[in-house]
């Protein structure tokens, strides 16, 4: 197939995943903001979403009376923020439109329906001062899209490129989320182990729909290294780094079988997978989780760049 088509499918999937991830983050931020203020900085909890989504600094004065609402708008629908929900959705649709004939009708309609419904849903949410139904809707729409993709798309190279985009983006998001909690949202004066620290970790788990799984696997209160293990190394977890990298590797193998053999990016994927496969949470924490995550993010990006070079240009 044309490299451009593969590239559009890859980015379509990446942006849809980004959309869902930010919606999850916003939900967590909102929950955190409902807690009694603990840092003295009123909008600290939105920082999580701002930093993880990679948004440029919000051009909103610190003393603006409605700073909270403005920040939220910035994250959801501000055209000045290329990482907003709307921006991701718009990019997803642009990429989808460009390869309309490679999508199934269900996929296109799902995507287009989300796009066309976004504005009115967001308006209603602002009017009712109720963010949750809006965020729920985004997550539902995202699930709908993946349902359409999984349920209708022929398992050919087009499918592989779309799914590779999904998992690279998801790995990137999970790693950033962990890093931000661990490194940036340092517990305030209450310190590690305080109740606020506990709530923050709980919400990180919520953000990746893993709170229940955590209890299922560990049967104890969330502890940072256990959480790190769950989100980095557990292959059963569909948002863990190991799971995502493994999927990318399997998809690349499938491409190699379907197309013309392995390329340079296959080695990079294999290397990254083995590194994760043979790591232990203890080692990672001991060497410094932050450094380890930065390395992972760089490797994950490098893998994406190699895939792009080998197939998408």
């Amino acid at each position: 197939m044309l490299s451009r088509t593969a590239n559009n499918l890859y980015w379509l999937a990446r942006y849809m995943e980004r959309l869902e991830n930010l919606a999850r983050l916003l939900e967590v931020s909102e929950r955190l903001s409902l807690l009694p203020d603990q840092t003295g900085e009123e909008n600290a909890n939105w920082q999580l979403a701002l930093i993880v989504s990679g948004a440029p600094p919000a051009p909103i004065p610190a003393d603006a009376p409605d700073r909270h609402a403005q920040l939220l708008h910035y994250l959801v629908a501000d055209p000045a923020n290329p990482s907003s929900l709307l921006a991701s959705l718009d990019q997803a649709r642009r990429n989808g439109r460009a390869v309309r004939i490679s999508l199934t009708t269900e996929m296109w309609e799902s995507l287009n329906t989300t796009y066309l419904g976004f504005e009115s849903r967001w308006k209603a949410s602002r009017r009712d001062h109720n963010l949750r139904p809006f965020l729920d809707w985004i997550r539902e729409r995202s699930a709908h899209f993946y349902g359409a993709l999984e349920g209708t798309m022929v398992r050919d190279e087009a499918y592989c490129f779309a799914r590779i985009g999904t998992f690279l983006e998801r790995a990137d998001n999970t790693a950033r989320l962990l890093d931000v909690k661990y490194h940036v949202l340092l517990p305030g004066k209450e310190g590690v182990g305080s109740w606020i620290d506990y709530f923050q970790w709980t919400h990180v788990l919520r953000a990746v729909s893993a709170l229940g799984s955590y209890h299922y696997f560990y049967r104890e209160n969330p502890r940072p290294w256990k959480i790190a293990e769950l989100l980095i190394l557990r292959e059963e977890m569909p948002r863990s780094l190991l799971f995502c990298v493994h999927q990318v590797q399997l998809l690349l193998d499938r491409l190699a079988a379907e197309l013309d053999g392995a390329r340079a990016c296959h080695r990079a994927a294999g290397k990254l997978f083995s590194r994760l496969r043979y790591s232990s949470a203890g080692e990672i924490i001991q060497d410094g989780l932050h450094e380890w995550l930065l390395d992972f993010l760089a490797d994950n990006n490098d893998l994406a760049a190699r895939i792009t070079r080998d197939y998408l240009l």
Partner: peptide, 17 residues
């Protein structure tokens, strides 16, 4: 953008090269 010329021949960029 899918096409390029090399040595007076036209090629399209595909996932198989």
């Amino acid at each position: 953008q899918d096409l390029f010329v090399e040595n007076n021949q036209v090629f399209m960029r595909t996932t198989t090269g």
